[in-house]
């Protein structure tokens, strides 16, 4: 009797399309929110290092002077905490996963030469300004000292 109980289900399953899909022939569709891997638009990064300090698995490193941002993708646990912390919002969570590999490797992103040049120019400008301000300050001090000396005489 119990055979008959299962007959409808068995028949249904017989004519139903398979539940599984034949990956990779039919590619997997990622959801919009899937946390796959971290990407960076490196030219917006200011090298503040907040992401490296936030990362719970220490997968990130930043070199401000060299203009590089490095991620060890095999250490990253795709938690998204760095994305939340980045003040410039230059980190994004992409849907597709990191491809598997034989050994841990890190990927380094390098700022484009134009941005580096622009930054260097800004730094120089700022340095020049600071130097000018310092010189003006010193000149003023010297003048004050001279004036004070004059009064004494």
């Amino acid at each position: 009797m119990s055979v008959l109980k299962y007959a409808p289900e068995a028949l249904k399953n017989l004519f139903r399309a398979p539940v599984t899909t034949s990956y990779p022939a039919k590619p997997f569709e990622y959801k919009e929110r899937t946390r796959g891997r971290i990407d960076i638009s490196i030219d917006d990064c200011i090298g503040c290092g907040l992401c490296t300090r936030a990362c719970p698995s220490s997968a990130l490193s930043v070199d401000k002077n060299a203009g590089t941002w490095t991620i060890n993708r095999f250490d990253c646990i795709a938690c998204g905490y760095c994305v939340e912390k980045c003040p410039k919002k230059c980190l994004t969570m992409e849907q597709n996963y990191q491809e598997p590999g034989g050994e841990k490797q890190s990927v380094t992103y390098q700022k484009s030469p134009e941005v580096m040049a622009e930054e260097a120019r800004k730094r120089e400008e700022a340095a020049a300004k600071a130097a000018a301000a310092k010189a003006a300050m010193e000149a003023k001090k010297a003048a004050e000292a001279a004036a004070a000396g004059g009064e004494e005489k």
Binding site: K31, E32, R33, T34, R35, I77, A78, C79, G80, M93
Partner: peptide
Amino acid sequence: IELTTGGRVIFS
């Protein structure tokens, strides 16, 4: 779960 959180096992 993946649709709403972005992860299948770890929700974060």
